[in-house]
Amino acid sequence: MDNRQLIMTAIEHIEDNLHQPLSVRSLSLFTGYSIYHFIRLFQGVTGLTPGDYIARRKITEAVRHILCEPGRSLLDISLDYSFKDYETFVRTFKRLLHTTPTQIRQKRNLVLPLLLHRLYSHDLQRWTDQHTIPPQTVDLGEIKLQGVQVTLNNDPSVISSAWEELWSRLSTIPERKLPEKYYQLGQWTEDYEDNGIRFLCGCELNNTRSLASRSLAGQSLISPELPIHSLPPARYLKFQHRGRSADISATYKYIYGVFLPKTDYRLTLPYEFEYYGKDYLGPENPASTSEIYIPISSL
């Protein structure tokens, strides 16, 4: 059993016992390693200490229950995850998410909570590059996109269907930049946990500031059927995803669950986007590289 498999065994044990008291010492005994060696090994594979992983997973699942079960008391939910008292539950919330259970329930958060979703073996297999390639900070001006919009709940096939529709209707976007520059924009609202995340699969437009009043042969130069989204000038963290598009969820788990919580960034802009440039070789090509942009502040 290699190190990654060993840590995956520990993670599965944590996931099976999220509703029970868990200690790092008990995990080290479970794996047969000294506590010192186990902590170093766990952090080397995941980027998190085992104690942080346990706390983040418990809080992430508690957030899900707070939003999905509005009739349950916050105290009962805290007890579900074996917090010794409600004050400890609230302190852990504030430390990890910079908010409170009450604010989560009332959806009064101005920032996106940085949650850690369950890790699987294939996630860890794809994290090696993420540990070694730091993101770049870039400033971008206004970006206007036009394309096909869908809402993602549980069926990821809606994304590929949106791209297929975009290809078939590309000629209806006469103001697209040439050669085309393709993006996938993800947007969330306060109720995204219940109603899903909106995605726009589209291409970048030329400066269309004055096109609303222009027409050709009585028709608008901008297709009225495909929505247009304007992203404000902003500062971004630019990450790279290497590999198939279907595996990009592992990269997002690393960004939101591991990297960003270690920083002082607060995500106040409710979107992210992927850009497919010259190094993108297609969704199924394992040598493909796409770019992920996470806005960290307005300019």
Rank of each mutant, 00 (worst) to 15 (best):
P156W: 10
P156H: 13
P156Q: 09
S157E: 04
V158G: 05
I159C: 03
I159F: 02
S160C: 00
S160M: 00
S160Q: 05
S161F: 05
S161G: 04
A162T: 11
A162Q: 12
W163Y: 12
E164V: 08
E164Q: 13
E164G: 03
E164K: 14
E165Q: 15
E165I: 04
E165Y: 03
E165A: 06
L166H: 06
L166I: 04
L166A: 03
W167V: 08
W167Y: 13
S168P: 00
R169C: 00
L170G: 03
L170A: 11
S171P: 00
S171L: 10
E175V: 02
R176W: 00
R176D: 00
K177G: 00
E180G: 12
E180Q: 01
K181I: 05
K181E: 09
Y182P: 01
Y182S: 11
Y183I: 09
Y183R: 06
Q184D: 03
Q184I: 04
L185M: 13
L185H: 10
G186E: 13
G186V: 06
G186D: 09
W188E: 07
W188P: 07
W188L: 10
W188M: 11
W188S: 07
T189W: 02
E190P: 02
D191C: 03
D191K: 08
Y192F: 15
Y192R: 09
E193V: 14
D194M: 12
N195A: 01
G196K: 04
I197Y: 11
F199T: 01
F199I: 09
F199Y: 15
L200I: 14
C201P: 02
C203M: 08
E204K: 09
E204C: 01
L205G: 02
L205I: 02
L205A: 05
L205V: 02
N206E: 12
N206T: 09
N206H: 08
N206G: 00
N207E: 09
R209L: 11
L211V: 05
L211G: 01
A212V: 08
S213H: 13
S213Q: 13
S213C: 08
S215D: 05
S215G: 03
S215W: 06
S215Q: 14
L216M: 06
L216T: 07
L216G: 01
Q219N: 12
S220Q: 14
L221K: 13
I222A: 10
I222S: 10
I222D: 13
S223P: 03
P224G: 12
P224H: 07
E225N: 14
L226E: 02
L226C: 04
L226R: 02
L226I: 04
P227S: 08
I228S: 11
I228P: 02
H229I: 14
S230W: 05
L231D: 04
P232V: 08
P232N: 08
P233V: 08
P233W: 10
A234M: 09
R235D: 05
R235S: 15
L237W: 02
L237F: 04
L237Y: 04
